[in-house]
Design a binder for these strands. Structure first.
Lengths: 204, 204, 204, 204
DNA sequence: GATGAATGAGAATTCATTCAT
DNA sequence: GATGAATGAATTCTCATTCAT
């Protein structure tokens, strides 16, 4: 069992190395330029190795998204939110979301911005448990704000979705467009602060 | 002359047919599955034909995005906005944006959601004149709302960008995710209305 | 007839323009990069036009070579050679050959250096009347040198061929290699003079 | 180790098979008709295989030329030349050159007769070490003949180049033209002998 | 488990040539 | 005669995936 355990741990580590390599490649060369061969080359593995850890390329990407969701959720579930006043907790949640996106831009884009591949069975129909969990945390935070009277009463689910969209719009634009196309961009910090202001005031 | 004119018109028409075919294919099979051959097959042309109308695949996509921006701008510049009270004009602008996105989902996704291809020269450095124009219309609308006292004073550029991001987040999510992944989605109409409420209240 | 004549002249002129354009393109971009479309573009014609003057691409190249031979021959047949002492005439002939090659490098390479295309019917079996004529001029010059006692007696045909090869070797190397590949090349002028010396002394 | 070695040997063998197939195709169909697919078909491989052994088509051709140079040089460096009297060594060198060309006609033509491809990076600027080495052997032989008093004093470099060109002219014509175009060709053997006589006498 | 050569389908693109206008 | 759009086959090259070793 000691042996089996060590093996399992090593397998996990290698799997993670593959994903990390994929992430770096996507970040540096773009999502559509990712190839199995490049991942293998980067790690000095043989291409066949990847298939010991992932069924195929689509599955690799799907798993990647799932794990991204999980890591996002992790950044929400720490105890400190419960300790804060409701609106501050709400803002902190938004801040965490943005931070996560900016710290994991490749993961964020793949998971939240790209049209889902049409050739991975069940990608779209698949329930996204980790995603749902994150969403429920947000719903709960808004409910607390409504109960405390800070936010006006309204359909909590719709409020959560609308807030998520607004913050997602910010995150995706910061990653994909900010600084390009000859537009007079405000600074990232200002845009983040103003977005959090907007959603907070918008729900009051 | 008559002949030359007719030819030019026919050429334009064919160019448009190619773009329409590309749009449909992107919509049905996904952006990354688009190939020159598929476009040609759909139109029952030979693959080489495409190259009489577009320099290469990248140029086709780039032109597609440029034209999308222009059509978006067209939906803003109609006279009626000037005739409305500032805040109503602001909301109408948002509504038009969403409508445009939902009516042209493929165009919208390619233009606003996808990471720009890394292999089309100058795609990123390129100024986007049509895009800038649309943005300026939005800035102007917000300024009117601020001058009328409906919106509080704040950096107009930052306000415009933040609003744009929020509405873009809504649009992209409605196109890419809404209805999937086993989430308890609110209706599209509710989400649109709540988003417009959110940004209006958020700027007051 | 006046009309028919003018037409024929115009047709010849256009044919020549096409060949000139082809020559320039071969010279600037290389033989294997020559395309019908590029010839047409250079002349601002439509691609189809070429086919009114040449059956196909192979025929164009074949005709090109034939005409090169004829022009080469023209540079030999001028009266002045007969007026010179035999050995001087022999050297002048060699000089003319080199001059022709260096002044018409594309034509020379295509005609004398490249393996004949395998897909033009009869290219190889074809007699080259113009080429044969030039060769006979050379044979005659050598015979004169032998009769005058300047050259030793030997098989005149073999002598002519060997001399031709030597001068051809010089011409082709000057065009294709001279100045490249990091070799310590002697000057063109020296190489020409030494080659003419070599063949003259070699036949004495 | 044993495994790795055997693999390396097999890989080399396969690489050689590919080059041999390419050589045969060039010989039978002509240089410009060579395609990757034809090589693969001839060997009953899939086209992609070639790319495991050569970066691309240009590299294949470049390597082919490099290896030709090396084999040519090998045919010169054998000890026996040093053992011969200078002029005999000089003639033997010429004979070896011709023999090499006639035994490797495709290689010879590609390496010495064709205009270098314009689309292989650095082909022209590239120094040709093997080629330079062969050239230096020739220079040394001529110097020996000059020192022994068999050849007259003259610029050794120019002499070597002129001789090389003459012998190259012979070799290229024997390969490309001899026997065709309805000319009264002397026999190969006579042409070779007469050329060696020509250069020997020409330098005396 | 790892290797790396091989596969085979398919990608973008080019080009000589044709033909209705 | 000229035009230029269309053809269709061919080209180089890429890539996910497999499989004997």
């Amino acid at each position: 069992m000691g042996v089996a355990e060590r093996r399992a741990r090593e397998k996990d580590a290698k799997r993670q190395k593959i994903m990390d390599a994929a992430t770096e490649l996507i970040l540096s060369e773009g999502f559509d330029k990712l190839t199995i061969r490049k991942i293998a080359d980067k790690l000095e593995y043989s291409p066949g190795v990847i298939y010991n850890y992932f069924e195929d390329k689509g599955q690799l990407l799907f798993d990647f998204c799932e794990e991204t969701f999980e890591r996002l959720q992790d950044s929400f579930t720490e105890a400190e939110m419960d300790a804060l006043p409701p609106v501050q907790a709400f803002r902190l949640c938004g801040q965490r979301y943005i931070d996560f996106a900016l710290e994991n831009p490749a993961a964020y884009v793949i998971t939240f911005c790209l049209p889902p591949p049409t050739d991975v069975d069940g990608w779209i129909e698949h329930e996204a448990p980790a995603g749902t969990k994150s969403y429920e945390i947000l719903v709960e935070l808004i409910r607390r704000c409504q109960e405390s009277g800070d936010f006006r009463p309204m359909d909590t689910a719709a409020a959560a979705q609308v807030v998520w969209f607004a913050v997602h719009g910010l995150a995706s634009m910061l990653i994909l467009c900010h600084g390009h196309y000859g537009m007079p961009w405000a600074s990232k910090e200002d845009l983040i602060r103003h977005t959090l202001d907007l959603v907070e005031r918008g729900l009051r």
